[in-house]
């Protein structure tokens, strides 16, 4: 049988992913994440009497901490698995991916394990994040000048 014909059989028996359902829950959970973030910013501005910019950094740190803590406690993967893009697109997803890799390689030692493998999943996020920040930063400078 030709590969093309076989591919048709495979396609026929391969289930469709529930994009609509997944999208719905990602929308809801992503929205809740946004609300929590906004709540934290307002909270820090009121309680610590800092500017919104500083409070935003505190909010990010808080969410990263919680993402890491919940990953270590072992239940965050189930929540991420259910919420999908709602949780792994925000900063919590980055923290979760990094912490899960660190946990996984803990046994292999500090340097050869955690150090070498912690960025296994997130390494490419950092690399391409930096590269695209550079490209878009340059574009912005060239198109709109440095004063925007």
């Amino acid at each position: 049988m030709e590969q093309k014909k076989y591919n048709e059989i495979v396609k026929k028996h391969t289930p469709k992913e529930d994009s609509l359902k997944n999208g719905f829950w990602a929308f809801i959970s992503g929205g809740i994440m946004g609300m929590i973030g906004q709540f934290l910013i307002t909270f820090y501005v009121r309680i610590l009497d800092v500017t919104t910019t500083e409070a935003t950094s505190f909010m990010i740190i808080t969410l990263i901490f919680l993402g890491c803590l919940f990953t270590c406690l072992g239940f965050f993967d189930n929540i991420v698995n259910f919420c999908k893009a709602g949780l792994f697109v925000p900063i919590t997803g980055f923290a979760h991916a990094m912490m899960s890799a660190a946990l996984e390689y803990k046994k292999e030692g500090m340097v050869t394990g955690i150090g070498a493998s912690m960025f296994k999943l997130t390494g490419s996020v950092i690399i391409f994040g930096v590269v695209s920040a550079y490209i878009f930063g340059m574009l912005r400078y060239l198109l709109f000048g440095g004063n925007i």
């Binding site: 289930p15 965050f76 993967d77 698995n81 912490m99 899960s100 996984e104």
Partner: peptide, 13 residues
């Protein structure tokens, strides 16, 4: 695949 504690979405297959 991925680290065990990583909860990224998995396909039905």
């Amino acid at each position: 695949r991925y680290p065990v504690e990583y909860g990224g979405p998995k396909r039905k297959t």
